[in-house]
Amino acid sequence: MIRVLIADDQAIIAEALAALLRTERDLEVVALAHSAPDAVRRAVEFAPDVVLMDVQMPGTDDCRDGIDATAAIVAADAAAKVIVLTTFGRPGYLRRAMEAGAVGFMVKDASADRLVDAIRRVSAGLRVVDPMLAAASLSIGASPLTERETEVLAAAAGGGSSAVIAAATFLSEGTVRNHLSAAIGKLGAASRAEAVRIATDNGWL
Rank of each mutant, 00 (worst) to 15 (best):
F105T: 06
A16N: 12
I184A: 08
C63V: 11
D68P: 09
V128I: 04
G59C: 05
A167I: 01
A124Q: 13
A168Y: 00
L17H: 07
G125K: 13
A14T: 00
D26F: 07
R90D: 03
D38R: 12
L85N: 04
E173P: 03
V152C: 13
G101H: 08
A69N: 08
A167P: 04
R177M: 05
E24A: 15
A47Y: 03
M57I: 02
L115S: 10
A118Q: 06
D38I: 02
C63P: 05
E194C: 06
P91R: 08
G89A: 12
A102E: 05
S111L: 12
A124S: 15
V196A: 11
G59A: 11
G141W: 06
I165M: 09
P37W: 02
D68S: 12
T86K: 03
G101E: 04
G158S: 11
A199Q: 04
R148C: 05
T169N: 14
R41V: 02
V4P: 07
A168V: 00
E147C: 05
A76S: 13
T169Y: 06
V152H: 07
L20C: 12
F88Q: 15
A190L: 11
E24R: 15
R96N: 07
A156Q: 09
A31C: 12
C63M: 11
N178G: 03
A136Q: 15
A134Q: 12
A97C: 06
L20K: 15
A19L: 15
R127M: 14
L205R: 12
K186A: 09
R3M: 03
P144M: 10
A167W: 00
S139E: 14
S191K: 11
L21D: 13
A168N: 13
A78F: 00
A168W: 01
D26P: 13
A97P: 07
L52C: 09
Q56M: 13
A189Y: 02
R148A: 13
P131L: 02
D9M: 06
R177H: 08
D109G: 07
L27D: 08
A76D: 07
G66C: 10
D130Q: 12
E194L: 11
V176C: 06
S172V: 00
A69F: 01
I165C: 10
G104D: 05
A155K: 10
R41N: 10
L20I: 04
P58Q: 09
R64N: 06
E15M: 04
V82D: 05
A76Q: 09
A157R: 14
D8H: 11
L145F: 03
M106V: 02
M98W: 00
T70G: 09
E194W: 03
G188Q: 09
E99M: 08
S181A: 14
D54V: 04
V128E: 09
P131S: 07
A72W: 03
L52F: 00
H34K: 15
P91W: 01
I13C: 08
L171Y: 04
G203D: 06
S137P: 10
D38Y: 02
T200G: 08
A124C: 08
H34Q: 15
R22T: 12
S143H: 08
